[in-house]
Design a protein around this nucleic acid. Structure first.
Length: 556
RNA sequence: UGGGGCGUAGCCAAGCGGUUAAGGCACCGGGUUUUGAUCCCGGCAUGCGUAGGUUCGAAUCCUACCGCCCCAGCCA
């Protein structure tokens, strides 16, 4: 059969969820509406794994003409805060997504309580007075069924009174818990009378001290979805086992909306950790410098590292959405930003580890202004002026007294092209008393500016800056945070930390125009990589972060 | 036989009974190049966890087996 050149694949992201939603819309399910939500708990900063969920939720709604809510799943005041909430909002906005409504599970506390009372009245929920330990024992194990709590058959009135008391703060934490009456022998442990309310006298960052009891996730989430009119509730795989419970609660409470949960595989990235708990540990232990440390896979860290929203979104598009436990290689992430910046980043020259070069046949005070292209393949990007002077700096690693095989940079008596400048020859190596190379004395071929040298080939090209017409800058080079592909496979993931994840070049010399670069502007430092002006940059102390190195087939 | 999932190349991932089994990343050549970059050209699964079966025809259907992931919070 002839496949009619699949127009269905025009949506560059065909995945099982997309297909399912497309089918729902085609069938007129939910009146053709696609309403999603992105529901983070404000207990930490968002990471790249959340970006996947954001792209999916907002992406599906947008594609099918629906809408998406940003909802804070704030039912555990012990861990949540205003700071996390604003950070999350900022990150979602930075990524470029707009929500229809800003929602809070805590806004539904009254409704949720009313539903709970109704459940008690119909005998579908009861107050249990077993201790946490006892409840665990009664729950049974993965293979053995649980058994009923002795409090399971309290009367409706008794339950109502106790629940009221719990709500009013008449009891201490842990004294009672409200449970759904489902099936203590279920093969699905989530259905063995899950707790839906616990007593907690913590101050809530939004509801203050109004509540002495807080609803739990399984009870809250499905009802929040229903209340908001969500049609497609997308979550990660670990909630697959919870879906029967999600549906049970909706069936019993009969809210107006009828959302459906669908699960997809969470993102895993090599050489890093993607769990709020681990990230909190890294931040609080001081191993990294805050939530926006450029080595972190947090949205704010990636932002400070120099990633753009477009590159992160492209990454999410490339990894796809499936139900398999995918572990994505770091190169996929790196490639998205490298690809974008290759197109958009203006070229500059920066010498991270300077070695002085004196052009002995260049007049002492002569300054030659060179017009240099901002982008080799884009004439429309224009030019900038850089000055050629008698004293220059080149990268220390671009000179080798005893070069390795195939080394095509500067060597004794050898020639090299100064990028956008002249071909120079190394005539003399100047060393200090300890034998360290302090400078190179070179001569230049005046007939090589913009032309090839006569009668010989010069293979190497090296970047440089004028010693007198460059400014000092601090340049931070980042490497992977962990040495192991999967840090979580270690006894303690902190043992897998890479001690060399950050190197700072305090005495880099860069083109003068770079001093005025405003934060978050990106450049390619030729032959080295893509860099972004850090938040801390200033005219007096320019600071750059390396986003990603250039591909380097020589280094391998 | 506790329940729920997943197995297509080094890593992702299309594919839904008939295609030479898409594409990306990675890798390996070759060409261009004043960035060892970019760009261009070419290569990269006789094979879809394994073994059987159904069928003219199977990655797609059936059966069995194997491997991996998740679940026993008053976390989400």
């Amino acid at each position: 059969m002839k496949t009619d050149t699949d127009n269905s694949a025009d949506s560059d992201s065909s995945n099982f969820i997309h297909n399912m939603i497309a089918e729902d819309v085609a069938n007129g399910k939910h009146q053709g509406l696609v309403a999603t939500r992105f529901p983070p708990e404000p207990n930490g900063y968002l990471h790249i794994g959340h970006a996947k969920s954001i792209c999916l939720n907002f992406g599906m709604a947008k594609e099918f003409g629906g809408w998406t809510n940003l909802r804070f799943d704030d039912t555990n005041p012990d861990k949540e805060s205003e700071e996390y909430m604003s950070a999350i909002k900022r990150d979602v906005e930075w990524l470029g997504f707009s929500w229809k409504s800003l929602c809070y599970a805590s806004d539904y506390f009254d409704q949720l309580y009313d539903f709970a009372v109704a459940l008690v009245k119909k005998g579908a929920a009861y107050v249990d007075s077993l201790s946490a330990d006892e409840i665990r024992e009664y729950r049974g194990t993965l293979k053995a069924p649980g058994k009923d709590s002795p409090y399971r058959n309290r009367t409706v009135d008794e339950n109502l009174n106790l629940l009221e008391g719990m709500k009013n703060g008449d009891f201490d934490e842990g004294e009672h818990v409200l449970r759904l009456k489902i099936d203590m022998a279920s093969s699905n442990i989530n259905l063995r009378d899950p707790a839906i309310y616990r007593i907690k006298k913590t101050h809530h960052y939004r509801t203050g001290d109004k509540w002495n009891i807080y609803p739990l996730y399984d009870y809250t989430h499905c009802l929040s979805d229903a209340i908001e009119g969500i049609t497609h509730s997308l979550c990660t795989l670990e909630f697959e086992d919870h879906r029967p419970l999600y549906n049970w609660v909706l069936e019993q409470t009969q809210p107006a909306g009828r959302p459906e949960q669908t699960e997809f595989g969470p993102l895993n990235l090599e050489y890093t950790v993607l769990s709020k708990r681990r990230l909190i540990q890294l931040v609080q232990s001081g191993v990294v410098d805050g939530w926006d440390d450029p080595r972190l896979p947090t949205i704010s860290g990636l932002r400070r590292r120099g990633f753009t929203p477009a590159s992160l979104i492209e990454f999410c598009k490339r990894i796809g959405v499936t139900k398999s436990a995918a572990v994505i290689e770091m190169q996929v992430l790196e490639n998205t930003i490298r690809e974008e910046l290759n197109e958009s980043a203006p070229r500059r020259m920066a010498v991270l580890d300077p070695l002085k070069v004196v052009i002995t046949d260049w007049p002492t005070d002569h300054v030659q202004a060179l017009e240099v292209a901002n982008h080799p393949n884009q004439p429309e990007a224009g030019n900038r002026t850089i000055n050629f002077t008698r004293e220059l700096y080149i990268e220390r690693s671009d000179f080798e007294e005893v070069p390795p095989p195939k080394f095509k940079r500067l060597v004794p008596d050898g020639e090299v092209r100064l990028r956008s400048g002249y071909v120079i020859k190394c005539d003399e190596i100047i060393k200090d008393a300890d034998g360290n190379i302090v400078e190179l004395h070179c001569s230049h071929d005046a007939d090589t500016l913009g032309k090839k040298p006569e009668g010989r080939k010069v293979k190497g090209v090296v970047h440089w800056v004028s010693a007198s017409d460059s400014v000092q800058a601090s340049v931070r080079i980042y490497d992977r945070l962990f040495n192991r592909e999967n840090p979580m496979a270690e006894e303690d993931f902190m043992d897998a930390l890479n001690p060399d994840s950050l190197s700072i070049f305090e005495h880099a010399q860069v083109e003068p125009n770079l001093a005025s670069a405003s934060p978050e502007t990106r450049f390619q430092f030729e032959r080295q990589g893509y860099f972004v002006a850090d938040l801390d940059t200033s005219e007096a102390h320019p600071v750059f972060n390396r986003v990603v190195a250039l591909r380097d087939t020589w280094a391998k």
